[in-house]
Amino acid sequence: MNEIILKLKSIYDKYKIIIILAGSILLLLVPVIFPKSYIMGIICRILLYIILAGGLNVINGYSSQFCIGYAGFFCIGAYTEAILALRLKINFWLLLPIAGIVTAIAGLLICLPTLKLKGKYLALVTLGFSEIVRLIALNWSSLTGGPMGLKGIPVPKIFGIEFKNSLSYYYIFLFLVAIFLFVTRRVINSRIGRAWMSIREDEQAARSLGVDTSMYKALNFMYGAFWAGIAGAAYAPYTRYIDSTFFTLDEGFNILSMAIIGGMGTLIGPVAGSIVVNLLTELLRPISEYRLVAYAILIIAMMWLRPQGLFGASKSILAGKEIVKKARKAEKEAAA
C-alpha cells in the first residue's frame, strides 16, 4: 500500500500541471458526461461527504482529539441555514459563512469544558452533544418544525441561475470542496497545522515548546465544526427539506467510517473514504440494512490491519501497528 502511494505521488509530482488542468476540466464536465440525475446524485453525495469527512479528519486526524458526534454540527449548520432562509429570507451565499460561524461557536462551547481532559472524554461528550442537538431539533417545534421538519427551503441563485437539481448543484458542492481542500491544505502546512500535529504526536512535548495546547485544540475543533456547518448549510437547500431524522448518531458514524476507512491525517484520505463508502452504499442498496454492518466490519478490519486507514498518514502516531512492533523490538534489544 505504502509503495503504491509513493509511486502515485512521484507520477503526480512529475506531471503536476497537466494533471491538475486535465483534472479540473474533467471535473467541470462531469454533469455533461453523466446527465442522469441518479448518478449526479451519488456524485453530489460524495462531494458533500468529502467536506464532512474532511472536516472531521481535521479534528480526529490532525490533532487527535476525538469527535464522534459530528452529525450534531452538520445538524446545526443545516438548521441555521434553513431557519434563517425561511424566516429572514437571507441570501444563501451569505448564509454559508453564517452557518459555519454559528457551528464553530457551538464547537467551541462543546470543547471548552473538555480541554483539560483526555481525548476520550471529548469523544463521549460529542456523542451526547449530538443527541442533545437532535432532540432539540425534534422537540422545539416552534423553531424547527419539530417532527414535521422544515419544508420549502429556497434554492440558491446566482446571476439568475437557479441551482434546482443535482446537475447544477454539483457545481456548488464542487466549489465548496475545492475551497475546503485549498484552505485546509494551507492551514495544515503552516505553524498552525504543525502545532496541531505536535499535539497529536506528543502533547507534553508540544507544551514544553510553548504551544498553547488548549488554545490550539479549541481552534482545531472550531475549524472542524466550521466545515460541518458549511456542509449543513449547503445540504439544506439541496434537499429543500430537513428534519431531525437526517442527523442521528448513525449519520455521525457514517461520516466517521469515511474518515477512518479512507484514512486520517492526510487530505486525500477522507476524499478516498467518501468515494469508497458512498459507492459501497450504492452497491449494498439491495441489502441496505446491512450497510452499517459492512462499515462496522470494515472499520474493525482497518484497525486490525492498517489503523491509519487506506490513505492515512502512515508516518504518524495514527499508524499504531508499527509503533507496537517497534516497542516490542526495543524491548527485545533491551533484554538482550
Binding site: F66, F253, A296, I299, W304, P307
Partner: peptide, 20 residues
C-alpha cells in the same frame, strides 16, 4: 500496547456491528 485511539475506534466499530 498500541495508541489508545485504536481500540477506541475498534469499540465504535464493534458497537455499530452489534447494534445493526
Amino acid at each position: 500496547e498500541a495508541p489508545s485511539h485504536i481500540s477506541l475506534i475498534c469499540t465504535i466499530g464493534a458497537s455499530m456491528l452489534i447494534r445493526n
